[in-house]
């Protein structure tokens, strides 16, 4: 139905797309370390040696773990398998609260102690009006 040229061009495009996708996949796969925005506490446990560079750690703020004394905030980041103690001095974002996602940027002191220079609140994908949230909480 179509000419030989049309078929050839079609195959040509498919081949280009395949090889591009494959090479992009390989590049990203090898750069995975840098593509991820933050490490989880479990990732930190698996680190070969402690990273001297600035890193980001993300997870949930553990319930009842936020302690505020003068201008220093202490809390625990958990991924429900491992935990890391975080200390930070400065202003925290409005959405920073217990049981919610957080990303801390800073330096590891040791495997379970992290000194943050910046705190970002991570929002989850749930959107609902306050009344619905209350109704859910009562259940």
């Amino acid at each position: 139905m179509y000419g030989r040229k049309v078929k050839l061009r079609f195959i040509f495009i498919i081949l280009i797309l395949l090889s591009l996708t494959l090479s992009v996949f390989l590049v990203i796969k090898s750069l995975e370390e840098n593509v991820i925005y933050f490490k989880s506490p479990s990732d930190v446990k698996l680190l070969g040696k402690l990273d001297k560079n600035q890193i980001r750690i993300g997870g949930m703020v553990k319930e009842n773990s936020i302690k505020i004394k003068s201008n220093e905030v202490n809390f625990i980041i958990t991924d429900f398998k491992n935990e890391i103690n975080v200390t930070y001095s400065g202003v925290v974002p409005n959405l920073f609260s217990e049981g919610k996602g957080v990303v801390a940027e800073g330096y590891l002191k040791d495997r379970s102690f992290f000194e943050a220079s910046k705190i970002l609140a991570k929002h989850d994908e749930n959107y609902m009006p306050p009344e619905v949230k209350e109704a859910l909480g009562e259940k």
Partner: peptide, 23 residues
């Protein structure tokens, strides 16, 4: 695929969406 600061999709065609119908 990766840990991102951006939240995952709230609207899913195949499974239940995590956004309230009023929104």
């Amino acid at each position: 695929w990766w840990n991102t600061l951006h939240q995952p999709a709230s609207i899913n065609i195949l499974s239940k969406s995590s956004i309230h119908s009023s929104m």
